[in-house]
């Protein structure tokens, strides 16, 4: 039984001394099996990627924007327009253009902007670090805040802390992202002026300075996720703490911390991890609000500006990169879910 558990990457059993010895011994297979699981999860994502990128590409096909006349202006002759359309490749059928675009994208070429002629990959590479650091920071804050308060509320079920967490999380669920952002600006730049109200410096300008520009946007972005996480963790953990095996562990005199963190958390965290997986796309895609309020030069603001101008290649490229990021992160979350609770394998 113990060996079987270890091979499945579970590795935590009641007789911990022997169990951990074997776990150390078989650490490599665990890594490999995780990699295989991740690979399979990514493979499942391929049809999804095709569907969602096709929808994205269709968007460019449906738009009434005609780059040829946009670039050439009013005085263009029909002959010029036709020539320009050939240059942009718009004379080919839509489905063919989609596969050409996807093929080029696989080789790192997303075309270039219709207006500025800057390669799309360059613009994205410039802005991706901004969006990624805000998203990752927000994820960390959300896990830290949501995890702490979710566990505390579940352990102190029915107590004042539990009630405060419930009220605060229900309240946070009603706050639109931009209102949270504005409120944070008012508090931390007008009432207690300690942090910059917006803008961006690269980490090369000093890590502390970089972090000071990152804190408020990440916090604003994380609140919704943190609240949802705390709520799900509280519900999941509260249910688990009433299970018979928890009572059994208490009877055997295991410490309270060990019961909560080792025995209960693993089974109770499933819904919370699943919710986290649903929130990751929102952290990546929802950053556009935060980027606008805090004047961050991220992917979201790039997409917004390009969409309002009608710069189709930039929009398509930025959406493609975002979709790939979303799919990779949800694959990771799914693998995590299976690692956490092998029984969850059938749910995905």
């Amino acid at each position: 039984m113990t060996t079987l558990n270890v091979r499945g990457g579970v590795g935590r059993t009641a007789d911990s001394a022997r169990g951990e010895g074997i776990a150390r011994f078989s650490a490599l297979p665990a890594v490999i099996s995780t990699a295989v699981a991740l690979g399979r999860a990514l493979l499942i994502a391929v049809p999804v990627l095709l569907v969602s990128t096709f929808i994205t590409f269709m968007l460019g096909g449906l738009t009434k924007q005609d780059p040829a006349s946009l670039v050439l202006g009013d005085s263009a002759t029909p002959h010029d327009v036709a020539r320009m359309q050939a240059v942009f490749g718009l004379d080919k059928p839509l489905i063919l253009r989609y596969f050409l675009w996807l093929w080029n994208a696989l080789h790192g070429d997303l075309g270039s902007s219709w207006f500025t002629k800057i390669p799309v990959t360059d613009s994205i590479a410039q802005r991706l670090p901004v969006s990624l650091s805000v998203a990752v920071f927000a994820l960390l804050i959300a896990v830290l805040l949501g995890g702490t308060f979710g566990i505390l509320a579940a352990v102190r079920q029915g107590g004042w802390l539990d009630r405060v967490v419930t009220v605060v999380t229900s309240f946070l669920a009603t706050v639109p992202g931009f209102v949270a952002a504005i409120a944070l600006i008012i508090v931390f730049t007008l009432v207690i002026p300690v942090l910059p109200s917006g803008g961006w410096v690269p980490p090369s300008a000093g890590l502390l300075r970089w972090a000071s520009f990152l804190v408020l946007p990440s916090l604003a972005l994380s609140l919704d996720t943190a609240a949802d996480l705390a709520r799900q963790l509280r519900t999941g953990l509260a249910g688990t703490l009433h299970e018979n095996y928890i009572v059994g562990a208490q009877m055997r005199g295991l410490s309270h911390a060990r019961i909560v963190f080792v025995h209960a958390l693993r089974n109770g965290a499933g819904p919370a991890v699943a919710v986290l997986g649903m929130h990751v796309p929102r952290l990546i895609g929802g950053a556009v609000i935060v980027e606008t309020v805090f004047a961050l030069p991220g992917i979201g603001s790039l997409t917004k500006t390009a969409a309002l101008e009608g710069d189709v290649p930039v929009v398509q490229g930025a959406l493609l990169v975002t979709i790939v990021l979303v799919l990779i992160s949800s694959a990771i979350v799914n693998v995590l879910l299976v690692r956490l609770r092998p029984a969850a394998r059938r749910e995905i």
């Binding site: 994502a45 049809p47 895609g285 969409a307």
Partner: peptide
């Protein structure tokens, strides 16, 4: 599944602006 993978707000912005 494909629709879920689309980044919500950015996609809505792109649709609204391009169409």
């Amino acid at each position: 599944d494909g629709l879920i993978a689309l980044p919500f707000l950015i996609f809505a912005i792109a649709v609204a602006a391009l169409l």
